[in-house]
Amino acid sequence: MSGAVTNIRSGARREWVINLVLLAGLGLVPLWAWFADAPFTITLATRAAILALAGTGLNIALGMGGLVSFGHAVFFGIGGYAMGILASHAQNYDPLVQWPVVIEGTQFMPVIWIVAILAGAVAALVIGALSLRTSGVYFIMITLAFGQMFYYFAISWPAYGGEDGLAIYVRNGFPGLNTLDPIQYFALCFAVLLVVLFFNARLIRSPFGLALNAARQSTQRVEAVGMDPFRLRLAAFVLSGAITALAGALFADLNRFASPAMFSWQLSGEIMVFVILGGVARLCGPLAGAVVFVMLEHFLGGLSEYWHIFLGLLLLLVVLLAKGGLIGLLSGRGAAHG
């Protein structure tokens, strides 16, 4: 028994070391690329950091709450369009709202992030309140249906580019930074990722996180100790949606483009794939998955447009042989504990 406990503890320590190595790697590679004048590598690292952020958002719902949401791209798209709409109005000197009060667009990132987070949270509240009344395959289907609704709404919304999406000309600004400089924009995205990971690490150990984990194991047992599983899951879903929306705003700013594809079910699937790849319910699982995803996309995508076949194979291997994902495999731990 004590041997098992020691194994769990050493596995947890190894996982922390792996997390630190991953974070240090993600922080140092762009720094090297900056010295080596390889801006595209910095952009790839920025993309990995943003996708990791989206995955961290999904991981709250999927990993902590056991909610298999197949529509998380909705929140990613909402964040992207929040950025696109606010920035395009600001660029065109066209007020967002003229009555009853005049509301201007903005290119100020902190305001855009707050709007994206709030919009994502409100959407998650509405979608969650409806979809969390179901479970299992019905929950998956309802979240997928919401994703498709938003997707078709975006492509049929001519005011904001319809099928062509919404381009902005200049990246939005952040006080004290030149966001057009790839390394500075990377640093900003990486800092946001670190803050969210720190928040997530605290959340996992909080009474709320523990209750959510318990509700994932047994609804009845959680109710028997006086907690409402529906509210717990809804709160997790809202948090998850808000973080994913923030990632969407950063992603749209990276590309200076908000596209209906940000709402697509394929993107929902991709976010889920790299969470599973890295390790569901692992703090840095989405980060590991996002890094692998971006690397495969970059290195194999250049060789063949069918590079997803290799991603599929890797996912198959991880699901069959490493239920704790890549992080679980490296740390010698199985599926995540609470």
Partner: peptide, 25 residues
């Protein structure tokens, strides 16, 4: 009342078969 509201009123249950949250410490 739903079960969680009954529990909050002050009913503590030790269910048959123990049923702890197995993956939590």
């Amino acid at each position: 009342l739903p079960s969680y509201r009954a529990a909050r009123l002050g009913i503590g249950l030790v269910p048959e078969g123990r049923r702890c949250f197995g993956n939590l410490s």
